[in-house]
């Protein structure tokens, strides 16, 4: 995109697929800001852009992968994390990022999320939470606050939502943070930090969905939602993730909650392999001698 009245390019443009603009996101949606924060945060890491791979699932956030001029995968609903696990384990040199929504990562992909966190796969997950399924028209999701209205909870939600940072932390994530799409500088900084963190880092970004969720819950414009974030966000670094639930139109605790060290999946694998085997792989043995393999005789 050219800046108005100028031929000058914005510094993130070269990482966007300009031939795919305009994007599909609604006016007032937070995804544009978050994508910007991601790219500027990524640039600051100094990681080679050729090694960055972005994997998305399905939904509005799922479209992020398609706008990035990086190796990017738009997979099936909920499956971004296992797909990314395959990429990362098969080529540890890749910097793997999962960029997807709350429905994709917490509902249909919830099982994959907790297991990737448990294994401490070295990847960064950016979970954009707009409290509902935006793309399909605003249905109830696993993060919808109690009593909130959606198209499948027209009389008010009576399901208790997940506290997303608590879920990630309890499952084993070594880095857990939350911001809203209004906190652009802090989000950018957190993204840089999360990308440089070894292990499973998880960043939740609360984001407006004025078209459906906002309209049904008395915040009908993106601006209304950003105003709500400004007035109700409480920065509390190191807060106990147990205590960062979000009530309908209530306070939003933001900040960096978890930043710990734990061996990654690959660290532990390497350790076990080094202990189990001699360092050298033998030359292919053509003398027709039979070799036995651990566990090769029937039980």
């Amino acid at each position: 995109m050219n800046l108005k009245g100028s031929d000058e390019k914005h510094y993130i443009d070269k990482y966007l697929r300009e031939d795919r603009m305009p994007h599909i996101w609604c006016p007032g949606c937070g995804l544009g800001s978050i994508l910007h924060c991601f790219l500027s945060g990524l640039i600051k890491t100094g990681i080679s852009m050729d090694k960055v791979v972005v994997v998305s699932g399905i939904g509005c956030t799922g479209r992020v992968a398609g706008y990035l001029k990086l190796d990017s995968f738009h997979t099936t609903h909920g499956r971004a994390i296992p797909f990314a696990t395959g990429l990362k384990l098969a080529n540890p040199k890749l910097k793997v990022v999962v960029f997807s929504g709350d429905g994709d990562l917490i509902a249909i992909g919830g099982n994959h999320l907790i297991h990737a966190a448990r294994r401490n796969i070295d990847m960064t997950v950016i979970c954009v939470n707009n409290f509902n399924y935006g793309m399909t028209g605003g249905q109830l999701g696993p993060t919808t606050p109690l009593t909130a209205r959606t198209t499948t909870s027209p009389i008010g939600n009576y399901e208790r939502p997940f506290n997303v940072p608590y879920l990630a932390a309890a499952s084993g994530a070594v880095y857990v943070a939350r911001w809203t799409s209004m906190h652009v500088r802090r989000l950018e900084q957190t993204i840089t930090e999360g990308l440089l963190k070894r292990g499973f880092s998880f960043i939740e970004v609360i984001s407006p969905c004025p078209t459906v969720y906002g309209r049904m819950n008395r915040q009908p414009t993106g601006l209304d939602q950003l105003r709500y974030y400004r007035e109700n966000s409480v920065i509390r670094h190191g807060a106990d993730p147990k205590e960062v639930d979000i009530d309908l139109n209530g306070k939003i605790v933001v900040g960096k909650f978890i930043d710990i060290e734990r061996p990654t999946y690959s660290d532990l694998l390497d350790e076990v392999v080094q202990k189990a085997f001699e360092p050298e792989l033998p030359k292919p043995d053509t003398s027709k001698k039979r070799a036995t393999v651990a566990g090769s005789t029937p039980k």
Binding site: P82, A90, N91
Partner: peptide, 24 residues
């Protein structure tokens, strides 16, 4: 090589797709 026991068959199938795109 890498052997990984996934959480279910949905994950297993996706993991091999990811690995293949990583060139393995």
């Amino acid at each position: 090589g890498i052997f990984v026991q996934m959480e279910d068959e949905l994950a297993s199938m996706n993991a091999i797709l990811g690995a293949s795109w990583a060139g393995v």
